[in-house]
Design a protein around this nucleic acid. Structure first.
Length: 187
DNA sequence: CGGTAGGCTAAAT
DNA sequence: GATTTAGCCTACC
């Protein structure tokens, strides 16, 4: 099994955070000249750097195909900060509901992000996770309910764990293939 | 302005 | 395998 190699590819050459963390995949021509908050964000995070992180996370989440799910940790890796899966959760938690914002609840498929165990994080209230499960079911994702009320998704079937973001792949970024993901064993 | 909790994870017991 | 420990950084009290 494991044709799509779930969260187990630690052999990544990501420099991680060495002292100052600013390895955003943002091209130099897209970096704002001044630390002025974009009008798209009604409420900006504390620092400009955090804003970039939020942006990267939201953009990455938007690339998750419908009917697929991934983990917080994987999103963290995709945006270049594999050590901060928790912050990914923070980003989604603070995802604006305001439709005028660049990223909001309706255009960012937050429901497609669950934890590494394949379980929808109950976070603080179960209603939220139930809502998330419903949203996933609506996309065709099968959500299994455990005896303890834990809602899990089969990563083998619905998992989405690309090595890099599709948008970056389209840019021609090919980070060497050290693993063969033919998945001939099926499941 | 300092301390704690939080939509997490991987590694070590 | 089930717990515990250790990183991480932001939001909130």
């Amino acid at each position: 099994m494991r044709l799509c190699t779930p969260p187990t590819f630690t052999s990544e050459g990501t420099p991680a955070s060495s002292g100052s963390q600013d390895h955003r995949p943002l091209p130099p021509d897209q970096q704002p000249l001044s630390p002025q908050p974009s009008p798209s964000f009604s409420k900006m995070p504390r620092t400009d750097e955090a804003a970039a992180f939020f942006h990267a996370v939201y953009a990455a989440v938007q690339e998750i195909p419908p009917g697929k799910v991934t983990s917080y940790g994987h999103i963290a890796k995709l945006v270049g900060t594999p050590q901060r899966p928790r912050q990914v959760g923070v980003c989604l938690k603070h995802l604006p509901t305001d439709p005028t914002a660049r990223f909001h609840h309706a255009n960012v498929p937050w429901q497609r992000v669950i934890n590494a165990k394949g379980v929808i994080s109950p976070r603080s209230q179960p209603s939220g996770s139930l809502n998330q499960a419903a949203a996933l079911e609506a996309e065709g994702v099968t959500v299994m309910a455990g005896a303890l009320g834990e809602l899990s998704v089969d990563f083998a079937e619905f998992g989405w764990f690309p090595r890099i973001l599709p948008s970056e792949a389209a840019m021609g970024i090919v980070p060497e293939s050290d693993d063969d993901e033919d998945g001939s064993d099926g499941e």
